[in-house]
Nucleic acid binder design. Structure first.
Lengths: 138, 138
DNA sequence: CTGACATATTAGGTAAATACTAATAAGATT
DNA sequence: AATCTTATTAGTATTTACCTAATATGTCAG
């Protein structure tokens, strides 16, 4: 519990982009990430190598894919994000602001703790953006 | 609104310690901070210089004091901490865990947003630790 | 007032994260 | 094969966050 590997905001952002592309036909290339993150390819490469060291991605011939553990972590962060957003909006916060704040903290909080909150607030099926919240346990 | 100067976790920790000593007879020395943070004096000095650059502390003859702006920021972080803690505990989280999590995010969220939550949850006068929550506006 | 001890500061070094440019290598396309 | 697009390597810079060792500045006991 709460023994998640520490990641940085940038690593989180890359993980989210990679996860969001999971169902697409083509794997994510360096240039794609470079465009989406507005960072030069060498910077992205550096970032991906760190995610590789942490066991979250695998790279082959320029293509990058999430490992099993990367997918798990991705899902946990997305769930954290949506639950936190829900909690904040339920307590009077503006949706846009809640989203930005959530982006900055969703990867810092262990999923187990957030999951407790999820149970407590009545397992809402959707976040304020209308996206599904699927409870995730590995 | 939400245009607070960015600080790091370590800067936050130092700010909190300095703020907690405000009412004491003697100002905080380098060794005191060094002891409380379990870091060597040169490391602390480095940290304090950054806080000085950000306008939060002033240093004179080895003594360090919070500036007006430093006190404001200190109070905002403390309030954020207590309100977030209250919110989390109210939603099923264990107090100790809520405290640790809050420490990691209280300095990342703008006070104005947190203040909205405070109003919404009925302006509780105490945090789960039993400490006063004083609404703070500059 | 002077030596000894405590404290502060400077200097210098290391490492990780976050960026960049420029150069090279490798692939793909025409 | 020549070109264009990507990927990778090499090298540089900044910020944060640490350290040790050396020096300077206080302070306090005698």
């Amino acid at each position: 519990m709460s023994d998640e590997i520490r990641i940085t905001k940038k690593e989180r952002d890359a993980l989210i982009i990679l996860g969001n592309h999971i169902d697409e036909e083509f794997p994510v290339r360096l240039v794609d990430l470079s465009d989406e993150m507005s960072l030069k390819p060498p910077t992205i490469l550096n970032l991906l190598k760190r995610l590789e060291d942490k066991g979250y991605v695998e790279r082959e011939k320029g293509m990058t894919v999430l490992t099993k553990s990367g997918v798990s972590r991705y899902r946990e962060i997305v769930e954290n994000h949506r639950i936190l957003e829900t909690l904040m909006v339920k307590n009077g916060m503006d949706l846009d602001r809640a989203c930005v704040i959530s982006e900055n903290i969703d990867f810092l909080i262990d999923h187990e703790s957030i999951d407790n909150i999820f149970e407590k607030i009545g397992k809402p099926s959707k976040c304020p953006h209308g996206r599904k919240i699927e409870q995730f346990h590995e």
